[in-house]
Design a binder for these strands. Structure first.
Length: 735
DNA sequence: GAGTTTGAAACT
DNA sequence: CAGTTTCAAACTC
């Protein structure tokens, strides 16, 4: 797989959905070249794109589901680093949903030999899927506005697609998912979400000619001399694509029409030009497969043809590359997926987003519950965009332009990355200043070797990337074994160690109760702040954009997102003084939130009506308060986080989240599906659950009962939560 | 950019 | 489980 040939192939795939546009022809000429950068290209595929798809299509659930299903690894494009390059491959086991990171290492390469399994198992069918995948990617990209086209990503994925079985088997060893469901889903589902994507631009032409996805694969093979049947194709899994297709009612007519349009839309958005990080994301397809089966529609038939042959393909990991920082956050893509996952009730299993960071590799969470919030904010944002712009996305005219830009911009993007890499800190600051989400994580570890939870990257389940200024870093693909072993060790100590720190109730719950209140989201363990008053990012709750809860042992909590005591702060001694000072703020703030609450209600009632992009949606009402007047908001951005969980009903999609720019919040927002959430969390866990937004004063609407109820006994809830979490373990890889 | 503060993570 | 140490982010200057 890692062979140079493949890399070349990857590069070629620019995909095209430009067929009609003159640009397309131009690209075709160019495409074959860029083998080196191909990696970048592959990376460019963002989870975002995937996430976006669902948004595009009306069914929110589907979207959410998809995200959950995927394990993603994001890689930043780094020409200098082979590791991140196309070489790294992702594999998912059909059975176990096992994910393995393939590295450049010879071993892995051997496993991935293009010639091997690919051709046999899935290639033909895969083509169909590939197109779908491509479309998805494009659509996603378009939504996300990631400059990099899905094609690249697809290519990377596809290159190794041939070896799926072998890969899967290997991967299985590395990562095992406990959840039987996933496995079953994979096995059972005839369809494979994975699609094989041809690298060559020529393929695009073929596709055009054929007009149908089914034919695409063939055409591609024929025309592309360079691409070997097995090798050339890139495997991508799209949980969503299928859904999308079904939802959209893809017709045999097809792919050309709607799909091509979608493809066009993908185009790279200018937005992505910013820094990019490589993120590898592993997604688990299992859940999604189930979903597919259920949805198996006309479209599915098309897709499935290939899949049926290659069940494993579904679980393949897809490398994504986020176009811009936001994208990086993978979580943009990732983030979205994460969010979706959170929103999605049943199907999602675990995804780690490194999410936050676009460019990082996401390590499959050992624990089922692990969703890394990584780009959640961005994702949400993307989704929102997608939702709002679905129509526009479909518009071919727009798409064409972006694509061309992508090609041209690719070099520029790479340059940007390099530039960014140079000074991580500066970069970060820039991003923060600019308001970009921080989804991408960067660490500055000096002693932990990035193998402890001190390391944000490690804690997020992602590999350190160049932007990191860590020393003696072991959190790199090269040391995969070490990383996995360490993770395992840490998890043995604390199964929830890699679980999302912030848990918000899912859609169903949120819609009625919690959703309206910021309280819906809460920190898993709660904070222990003593001096910061939970008003600084030292506080994990605050950092995560959520209010403190019963679980918190903080002193003098003033968390703008919600005090642990509830709306009424009975405060600790010291706070009384502060309260006075805050009084003014409150007066102003309280009203704002109130306003927002109303708006929220409206949205909930008419979720579709409200445009996602509206500023209001960005943040929770409460969120704004904290930063108002006196205190300056945290550097990065205000945590709009909360908005997602509590305020906005997640119905279908977490629209509000999408808009949220902040990375960290997003990151924390790893969502857990309602179903999955322990009852405690859903109900008891968030004291707020019962609270209604309407309360006039409450900047934060906390249920009155909280104050009274907050007895020490309540804190026990924390323990309960932990217990509940174990339910997710299935996701954790077995070793 | 260096130094300080802070609280989580790790250790005892 | 509590106390202490270590660590790196967040923050300040």
């Amino acid at each position: 797989m890692d062979t140079p040939e493949r890399s070349k192939n990857q590069i070629n795939t620019p995909i095209s959905k430009f067929e009609e546009s003159p640009v397309f022809s131009f690209l075709n000429n160019l495409s074959p070249i860029q083998p080196v950068k191909s990696v970048h290209i592959t990376q460019t595929l963002n989870a975002l794109s995937f996430s976006s798809l669902p948004s595009v299509f009306t069914s929110p659930h589907a979207s959410s589901l998809k995200e959950s299903r995927f394990l993603r690894r994001h890689q930043l494009v780094d020409p200098s680093r082979p590791e991140f390059s196309s070489d790294s491959e992702k594999k998912i086991d059909g059975n176990g949903g096992i994910v393995k990171y393939a590295h450049n290492s010879s071993e892995q390469q051997e496993n991935f030999d293009p010639g091997n399994s690919l051709g046999e198992t899935s290639i033909e069918p895969s083509y169909d899927c590939s197109q779908l995948a491509v479309e998805f990617v494009r659509s996603l990209n378009y939504d996300c506005k990631s400059p990099i086209s899905s094609p690249k990503a697809s290519c990377a994925a596809s290159n190794k697609g041939c070896d799926w079985e072998s890969l899967i088997s290997d991967a299985a060893d590395l990562l095992n998912f406990d959840t039987p469901k996933d496995v079953d889903s994979f096995n059972e589902s005839p369809r494979s979400t994975t699609a094989f994507y041809t690298n060559n631009t020529n393929n695009i032409q073929n596709m055009q000619t054929f007009g149908c996805i089914e034919h695409q694969g063939e055409g591609m093979d024929n025309e592309n001399p360079s691409t070997q049947p097995g090798e050339g194709s890139c495997v991508m899994e799209f949980a969503e694509p299928e859904e999308v297709i079904t939802s959209s009612s893809l017709n045999s007519e097809c792919m050309e029409g709607s799909l091509s349009q979608k493809m066009d839309a993908e185009p790279v958005s200018n937005l992505y030009r910013g820094m990019r990080r490589r993120c590898l994301v592993f997604e688990m397809a299992g859940a999604r497969r189930k979903h597919l089966e259920e949805n198996s529609g006309s479209v599915s038939s098309i897709l499935l043809q290939s899949d049926g042959n290659t069940p494993s393909a579904d679980k393949q990991l897809v490398p994504f590359k986020s176009g811009n920082d936001s994208s990086r956050c993978i979580l943009p893509g990732i983030g979205l997926h994460l969010n979706a996952l959170a929103t999605t009730p049943k199907e999602f299993k675990v995804v780690k987003q490194d999410a936050s960071v676009a460019g990082r590799l996401v390590i499959a969470p050992s624990s089922t519950a692990n969703f890394q919030p990584i780009m959640a904010g961005q994702e949400s944002f993307n989704e929102s965009l997608a939702l709002t712009s679905t129509e526009t996305d479909m518009d071919p005219t727009e798409n064409a332009a972006p694509l061309t830009e992508d090609a041209n911009q690719l070099s520029a993007l790479i340059a940007n990355e390099e530039f960014n890499q140079i000074s991580p800190k500066k970069k970060r600051r820039r991003l923060e200043v600019s308001g970009e989400p921080e989804g991408c994580k960067r660490c500055n570890c000096k002693k932990s070797k990035c193998l402890k939870l001190y390391c944000e990257c490690f804690a997020a389940g992602v590999y350190c990337v160049e932007p990191c200024s860590c020393q003696e870093c072991f959190n790199k693909p090269i040391h995969e074994d070490t990383v996995l072993a360490t993770r395992k060790q840490i998890e043995s100590r604390n199964p929830l160690a890699f679980a999302p720190k912030v848990i918000r109730s899912s859609d169903s719950l949120t819609e009625d109760d919690s959703s309206k209140t910021p309280a819906s989201a809460r920190h898993k363990r709660g904070c222990n702040c003593k001096k910061s008053g939970c008003l600084k990012k030292y506080c994990e709750c605050y950092q995560g954009g959520v209010g403190c809860s019963i679980n918190c042992r903080c002193e003098g909590c003033k968390n703008a997102f919600g005090r642990k005591d509830g709306s009424i702060y009975i405060g600790t001694e010291a706070e009384l003084e502060e309260d006075e000072t805050d009084a003014l703020e409150k007066t102003v703030k309280d009203r704002k939130p109130h306003k927002t609450a109303i708006q929220v209600d409206v949205e909930q009632q008419n979720p579709e009506s409200a445009p996602p992009a509206t500023p209001l949606r960005f943040g929770r009402p409460s969120v704004q308060l904290p930063f108002s007047s006196k205190k300056k908001p945290p550097r990065s951005s205000l945590p709009s986080i909360g908005s997602s969980s509590g305020l906005y009903p997640i119905q279908g999609l977490a629209k509000p989240n999408l808009l949220h720019p902040q990375p960290k919040f997003d990151k924390h927002f790893q969502t857990v599906q309602e179903d999955e959430l322990p009852e405690i969390l859903q109900g008891n866990g968030s004291p707020i659950g019962g609270i209604k937004l309407a309360s006039p004063n409450s900047k934060r609407v906390s249920p009155p009962h909280c104050d009274f109820e907050m007895s020490p006994g309540r804190r026990s809830s924390r323990k309960l939560i932990l217990q509940s979490i174990p339910a997710f373990p299935s996701l954790t890889p077995k070793h």
